[in-house]
Design a binder for these strands. Sequence first.
DNA 1: GCGAAACTTCAAGTTAACTTCATAGGAAGC
DNA 2: GCTTCCTATGAAGTTAACTTGAAGTTTCGC
Lengths: 153, 153
Amino acid sequence: MEWLTIGEVATRSGVATSALRFYETKGLISSERTDGNQRRYPRATLRRVALIRAGQEVGLSLAELAGALEQLPHDKTPTKSDWERLSNAWRTRLDTQIAELVALRDELTDCIGCGCLSLKSCAIFNPGDAASGLGTGPRYLLGDSRDAAAAEG
Amino acid sequence: MEWLTIGEVATRSGVATSALRFYETKGLISSERTDGNQRRYPRATLRRVALIRAGQEVGLSLAELAGALEQLPHDKTPTKSDWERLSNAWRTRLDTQIAELVALRDELTDCIGCGCLSLKSCAIFNPGDAASGLGTGPRYLLGDSRDAAAAEG
DNA sequence: GCGAAACTTCAAGTTAACTTCATAGGAAGC
DNA sequence: GCTTCCTATGAAGTTAACTTGAAGTTTCGC
């Protein structure tokens, strides 16, 4: 098997070495060590990293990706069915996200028509749970107590 | 004019008092003080807060919202044209986000068909800039150096 | 006019996904 | 064998959007 240094993986994947080490601490990728304690990655790591980046594009967190990648072999190329399973799941996720955003946009479009100065009946201003799966960030901090009546006229 | 305590605004808007204070430090809302140094908010603050939450649903950051809200009066109900301007801008933004996600999904669907085990020609694995406007989080940390050739067979 | 509930400020903690830095050891070319 | 680049580790910093906690002050109902 051919082994790659962390620098080589970084160059060829476009991911910084610091990120690769970080991924390793999270169990997303793994490596062997040389006698001098340096990491050596199997070639399949390139695919794993590519999968990670692709998953992130789809909006997955590293924690979620760790779960998905657990099922893939660390040191071999994933099979077609491995990839089909993942990509189907990700497409479903994208479909959901798209549907949520479309719903939000449609509500907003309605609001423009109505002027929406009353707010009471406006779906945008009294959100249910649309678009809740967006973004990796501190969005988890929202959505806890947004059910109280939002505002009035 | 009728003034509301921070607790009243919190209850009626569904936003925690700590968040309201935080918004105030960011200039998103403003208040007067009583003799005892307690905040009193004008009623229009309820609308402002509702607008903030709505904007967040659309994926805007507080910094962006601060810019948008600068144009609105702090102590009066925004006019219909104020709201039309904002909601049009937000709808445009949603349209863009949706288009990006749809593009990503379509690419992914193609990939399922092709098995995509070569990765070289796969749009998902060699992303351009689709879906770059997603999420508030540390997504700014990505996208700096993703142009290097992603992986190979 | 008393006690409880609400309010004040400020500092520090939280989460994700990394980066940056300091310090030190390894690998490779000539 | 020397120099230079690469790599290792661990701690701390970054960003957004808040929350939590501590320690003290106001306000309100009765």
